[in-house]
């Protein structure tokens, strides 16, 4: 964690100073900032543009293009539910209904229920043991609402 306020020019400079020369590019810079702050804070765009000598437009273009990059702090638990074909074939629709019943949330793009964020993703590479879900980076196979509840509790 940086000692500076997230998004301040000093904070951005301090994070980007650790980038090796061949990674002084927009995407790695934003990824590094997200690693440090958990998200890309307001104000970082100008600082990144300045630091890398590119236009603000280019930085915003990259920031809004990639699903992984986020502009708000993540809640305590991030649940990524795979909704791609192989998990559809293994009953992810039932899991989504279960989540809706239990957490009162229709899983979409970064929908929040209390301290849990649910995000629809397309393939976690666990296509023979679906439905597949990732909870704070930990993969859960053959996921049902019971297994999901356990994983969310463990992640809190």
């Amino acid at each position: 964690m940086s000692a500076y306020a997230p998004g301040s020019a000093e904070a951005v400079r301090s994070v980007l100073s650790a980038l090796p020369a061949d990674e002084r590019l927009i995407l790695p810079a934003l990824q590094r900032l997200q690693e440090s702050f958990g998200y890309i804070p307001d104000g970082a765009v100008d600082a990144v543009a300045d630091e890398l000598n590119v236009s603000r437009a280019e930085v915003v273009g990259v920031l809004t293009y990639y699903h992984d990059l986020r502009q708000t702090p993540p809640p305590a638990v991030v649940v990524q539910v795979c909704v791609a074909e192989a998990c559809q074939a293994q009953g992810v629709r039932e899991l989504l209904r279960g989540i809706e019943g239990e957490y009162a949330v229709a899983v979409g793009k970064r929908t929040v229920a209390g301290d849990v964020e649910f995000d629809k993703v397309y393939c976690l590479g666990n296509c023979a043991l679906g439905p597949a879900v990732m909870v704070n980076g930990h993969l859960v196979g053959r996921c049902d609402t019971r297994r999901l509840r356990t994983a969310i509790e463990a992640a809190r």
């Binding site: 927009i26 995407l27 990259v62 293009y65 699903h67 990059l69 993703v121």
Partner: peptide, 26 residues
């Protein structure tokens, strides 16, 4: 190793190259 950032189309080789250059993966 370069970590991607969640874009299916970056599996297309030219989009991947754009992404490796730090740009939008177009």
């Amino acid at each position: 190793v370069v970590e991607a950032a969640g874009s299916y189309v970056c599996g297309e080789e030219t989009a991947m190259l754009e992404s490796l250059e730090g740009k939008r993966g177009m």
